[in-house]
Design a protein around this nucleic acid. Structure first.
Lengths: 143, 143
DNA sequence: AGCTATATTTAGAATAATTCTAAATACAAA
DNA sequence: TTTGTATTTAGAATTATTCTAAATATAGCT
């Protein structure tokens, strides 16, 4: 019997960025490709249980850790709230709308190289840059 | 008997930004004015015990919370590491040198208005902007 | 100064996100 | 298949932080 990919893992390759994509890692990754609302590990755990009742929270944490380490996902932290995750690998910031509680990606304006704006010594190597914004979007805006 | 300020609380007013500055709050604030290395609540607790053996960790947390709420201090978070605190209220980012583990303030280059660089709808209100950078400073640099 | 109401401090317990442990399972290579 | 390694799993452990409730301090009265 040939084993076809289940719809849930369709089109996600068996290796990304040097990580072996196990069933669980595929499910975590797929969810984050689909849901752009920056879920927490717990959110992801709850969502995945429908398709994968056997998955454990520790596995969700393990998968997220691996995928972040291998730069397949980004971890997003607002203060000390539970970490959130996103599959958008473009350089971007995160905006938390205090009215709705929703988090969204924020791109930088065209031609802005954000790394050039800091008063740092020449030859400083920037490995990672986190930008988080709290604020309120105008009423009409869904962005 | 007139009660003179002890040296430890010298020159810190009895109220800042609408907060009553108790002995404990003064000590916490004074420490952060002196030590610019972004200590954690626990670091602060350990340091203060020399001058104030009776202070409790819960009090340090309480003081920090109050002073942050009243915008006397800033809370600094790198990922989900323990929160750090600083008394620098100018708009600035934070740089963690991965070689030394030290955190330092980073100013923005002159004439840069960081809030103008994001691709956000007009009339978006930015309440708070956190910028944290991980990287490596050049060898000769203490900044 | 004393009295009273409120605010703050304190020790210790509780919470909650995350990590660890060790056993079970899956997988890959020989 | 067998054998070694990687991964998953459940549950325990960890740890920064918050909560609780009692004790103490302070401010505003009289």
């Amino acid at each position: 019997m040939s084993k076809a990919s289940s719809p849930s893992t369709l089109s996600i390759p068996n290796e990304i960025g040097g990580v072996r994509m196990t069933k669980q890692r595929k499910e975590v990754y797929r969810l984050l490709l689909e849901k752009k609302d920056h879920p927490t590990a717990h959110d992801i755990f709850i969502s995945l249980q429908e398709r994968m009742p056997s998955i454990s929270l520790a596995t969700v944490y393990n998968c997220l850790e691996t995928l972040v380490e291998h730069e397949v996902l980004q971890q997003v932290n607002f203060d000390r709230e539970p970490s959130r995750y996103c599959a958008n690998l473009k350089e971007h910031g995160h905006f938390l709308d205090e009215k709705t509680g929703k988090i969204q990606d924020v791109a930088f304006k065209k031609d802005v190289n954000i790394k050039d704006l800091f008063d740092l010594p020449e030859d400083t190597i920037i490995e990672n840059l986190d930008i988080t914004i709290r604020g309120i979007l105008p009423n009409n805006s869904t962005h």
